[in-house]
Design a protein around this nucleic acid. Structure first.
Lengths: 368, 368
DNA sequence: TAGGGTCCTGTAAGCGCTTACCGGTAAGCG
DNA sequence: CGCTTACCGGTAAGCGCTTACAGGACCCTA
């Protein structure tokens, strides 16, 4: 209708300027709302922009003002053998990413995502390449060794999720300790169980180490007997949880009265394995999870677990990264409160809506 | 240990060059594997790069050679009222994105993602901003009107998913027609059901329109009676499916012998609603889904459905976008084959592994 | 009416990288 | 031994945008 459409030679700010009969500086100012252009100038520029469908080039902009408005997010994608329902873990990561995005959009940033397979070799190189395209990086759990992170962190701002801060990188995590503590107290004090077990997660996960340690400390403090050892090593998966139960039982070991699982998926596998052996939950053995994934409430019995504010975790991670990017500051280690969600797998009655206040350690103890 | 670390003044190719004692052009060549630098030159550059932990700036690179190596991906995030399990839809999108990423990584591209809420207002502006940061865009279903897409498409290469091509944009979708056809034939010919119904998806979804039309055409061709009308309007959600069944029943209508659902989630709601009324699946009414989401096989009864190659869809979308970006070509409308997955909700026996070949229309008919 | 402010707007200098182009050196050949 | 050819490597010109700086127009005051 109008022009025969530019010969694909990329529309630039010069095209807009000449069409509007002003200089490129004016176009730039109008587009960025700087200075105080005359109403007429602004109008002419806007009109030219509209007519041309002009969108400023992000790369040029980034180069010019040293800000790409992009954060890189790196995570591991499942891979290997997918136990049924293992795909849940996608969701977990996805929810966090959604949170990051929410934070990012508030500042006009976008997410540049890159997943890494478990057996990809050039991980460090891939991450470095991503770093070049972003203002900062957010790394999900278990992406890089501590030295890897440290090295990365001095080329670009880095925030890790559920890890631990290094001299140069920041970290955001949930309050695992309080969560485990609330769980143990609920089981020992409220229910009176005297023996506990903990099906652990991947040995190389900081989250797991913290949970495991908190379990031992708190159980002992509460006066409960604990069952531990290599037989209790799971790997955050349902298959891992099932295996632990099976091998424990096959070895003729007596199960403790209550079993805490490193996460909900593990609990799912444990409950499944228990059901196969005819062991009732919670009548014979009480089970608890960690995470409160969406399906947790639909299990049989509904799972008592710890809810982590995952979306908030993501948003917080962005905020911290952002402050590091813009001001250079940023809190080194941020801990978010968790919440005890009591359902039935611990032995509570179906509709016991509330639970004695003292148990909601994290909820009441860390309200901001 | 080594240097006191540059004063944060961004490391550039000049720093590398001077440290290696060569020119910036040489550094660039080494880094990009162009020309044929002397072994010694290459080595010195690499060493300097290593010592400095240098990563070239993506923006500068993009600006210089006109390629950002970034594709923008836009999708709607749930929002509103989340029916239980509705979060599944995350997964759906996520799997496609994973596919896009796989394709992208082969070319050294990364994904710049941006989700849009259902009630965000400035959608077009947000997408335009994203366009400025990417070489091309992939839009998930129902992101923009046809004119919106057309307008966008003449600023940047655009590929839509499950939509329809416009003069300027490309599209990739699954073979809905064949899927519905296989389903209808299986129900009518193999099972002998004479009356069918179709719980539709969102009215504004091209996928849904195609499925709906294919349903009517094929059912009539197979000689079955079909039940249609506004009462059958679902919206791709479990809640929608449940509502359709409930209102149909409340109105005293007799249900057809078999009901096809616009997607698996809808089927989930339908089965749920049916169970509440004491109607048995598949004995009283046979149900089928579409998509084959992971939980489909775990429903009661396991859901007969159509599997869409979602990851492949994503990968294909990237490939097409890439060819448009690099060569300007690209197939306008790409159709991927689907596969009939027979389980029990259609009335088949639990372990009937295989099904007569002629039903797997898409599988056998479109093998590449 | 001239001097001094105020506002706007235009000119031009980069941001960090790629690459065309050209000069210098070494190797090949007669 | 001198000239051609090949091969490397350096210089410099942008890529599209932001922004410091300076110039012009206009208004106010004396």
């Amino acid at each position: 209708m109008t022009e025969p459409k530019k010969a694909k030679g990329t529309l630039t700010i010069y095209d807009v300027a000449s069409r509007a009969g002003v200089s490129i500086a004016s176009v730039s100012r109008v587009l960025n709302g700087l200075g105080s252009p005359r109403a007429e100038t602004r109008e002419r520029v806007m009109q030219a922009v509209r007519e041309l469908s002009f969108v400023p080039d992000g790369a040029a902009r980034a180069l010019s003002n040293g800000l790409k408005e992009v954060v890189g997010v790196v995570f591991r994608r499942g891979g290997e053998e997918l136990f049924e329902g293992e795909d849940e873990s996608f969701l977990f990561i996805d929810v966090i990413n959604r949170g990051i995005e929410v934070g990012a959009q508030r500042r006009g940033f976008d997410l540049l995502i890159s997943s890494v397979g478990f057996n990809d070799d050039n991980v460090a190189a891939r991450i470095a390449a991503l770093a070049g395209k972003a203002d900062g990086l957010i790394l999900h759990d278990r992406m890089l060794s501590a030295v890897g992170i440290a090295r990365l962190a001095d080329m670009v701002p880095v925030v890790t999720l559920a890890g631990s801060p290094t001299p140069a990188s920041l970290n955001v995590r949930c309050d695992n300790e309080s969560g485990i503590r609330a769980l143990v107290r609920h089981l020992v004090i409220d229910h009176g169980y005297r023996s506990l077990g903990y099906v652990s997660g991947r040995a190389d996960s900081p989250d797991n180490r913290t949970r495991s340690r908190a379990f031992e400390t708190e159980a002992v403090a509460a006066g409960a007997a604990i069952d531990t050892g290599p037989a209790w090593q799971g790997n955050y998966s349902a298959a891992g949880g099932a295996t632990v139960v099976a091998s424990l039982l096959d070895a003729g070991r007596k199960l403790p009265r209550a079993i805490l699982c490193a996460n909900d998926q593990t609990a799912l596998g444990v409950i499944h394995a228990l059901a196969q052996r005819g062991i009732r939950v919670p009548q014979d053995v009480a089970i608890t999870g960690f995470d409160d994934v969406p399906v947790a409430r639909h299990l049989h019995p509904p799972l008592t677990t710890i809810r982590q504010p995952m979306q908030e975790l993501g948003a917080k991670a962005f905020d911290i990264l952002y402050s590091r990017i813009s001001a250079g500051g940023g809190k080194a280690d941020t801990v978010l409160p968790v919440e005890l969600i009591v359902r039935e797998s611990c032995g509570c009655a179906p509709n016991s809506k509330s639970v004695s206040g003292t148990d909601l350690v994290s909820k009441d103890g860390q309200r901001r």
